[in-house]
Design a protein around this nucleic acid. Sequence first.
DNA 1: TTAGGGTTAG
Length: 425
Amino acid sequence: MQESSTKPNVFTFATMVKACSVLADTETGRKLHARIEMLGFQSNLVVCTALIDMYGKSNNVDEARRIFDMMAYCNIISWTSMVVAYAQNAQSHDALRLFREFIQSMYYLQNHFMLASVVNACGSLEPICNTLYLNDSWSCKNGLGKLSLKLFKEMLERGIRPNGVTFVGVLHACSHSSLINVSLEHLNSMQRKHGIKHGIMPDVKHYMCAVDMLGCAGRLDEAYWLAKTIQAKPDDGAVLWGTLVATSITHGRLDLVVEAGQKLIELNRQVATSYITVSNTYAVAGKWENVHRIRSEMKQKNVYKEPDCSWIQVKETIYVFYAGYVLSCIRGNGVVHLSRELEVKMKERGYVQGSNDLVFVEVEETKEKILSLHGERLALGFGLITIPKCVTIRIMKNLRMCRACHKAFKLISEIVKRDFVVRGM
DNA sequence: TTAGGGTTAG
């Protein structure tokens, strides 16, 4: 496109920023941002929203917020993107604060909508919009200063309310800070305040957030009770009961592991994730013959989970690492050497492979060998020897990081005194 | 053209 005479427009930039967001390619994202400012597209609502999302997903919440604050006007997607950026970066309280601000401004606008309607009925809407926008200090203090007259009028006409996606972000924020009661209040408020009148009823996604949150908090009986009441399609049901299996394993509730595992089996989902979760259920219960039966069944039916893969960007180049490919990976010897050194230091700090780790093999030694070779561990080793100390190491994965690697990363971060960011797709 | 959660062998 650059070589041709076609000029990129806001659509082009919004799409390219989105691509960077998916890949967490901050380098390219920043360059695009610079081009956006140079060409004067920085006032476009959709482009800014894409940038907020991109910076949020690249662990740069401050930059996301800076853009959000500079926007002349925001829509529901911009608000939600900012709430979600906080939630995804463990800044739950900021997410909830922003959401409260949003709700306050919403009711404020609705009240003035009534007033404006009266004025409008008498004559023109313009004067009252001008007055409210320019002179009201309360609205500026509460974040309304960022609303342009144009959008302000639009909001007065339509009202911008949180939607189902906004609430997923809010519940996610609560869940990751163990704000259980706050979360349940929001869930109830969806029906009470925003539901019946405005059509935002909680659906299976919101209830699944609640089940996971209750399960993580160890309130497994409530989680189980809630899971049983949810009317879910088989796809959602498999995830729902899989979630319960995982949290029950974490809290050592063997009874519920078996119960939830049974539900998963009944759903008869012929996909790798369900097979694996069911197999793990049997492993926890010590029923190794069932574990072997499931594994051979998977082999027979040719059901595989996609291979684990991690990548890391150093300057312009992206380096990819697969589980187990230690010796063939770039600077493999250096990575192996460093990994061994770190393992010794981790063990000195009491690092043991937990019996609850979700890698169920019968021989401990094999388990340790498998874990030490996960792609993100190789990528981290490579990052540590190639990326300067002052730069945060950012690793991307196609799957979710396993618990053992998560524990290891936290310890290594303490040992080498550096921050790491690992993001799954 | 822009925004979501939860499960998980190698």
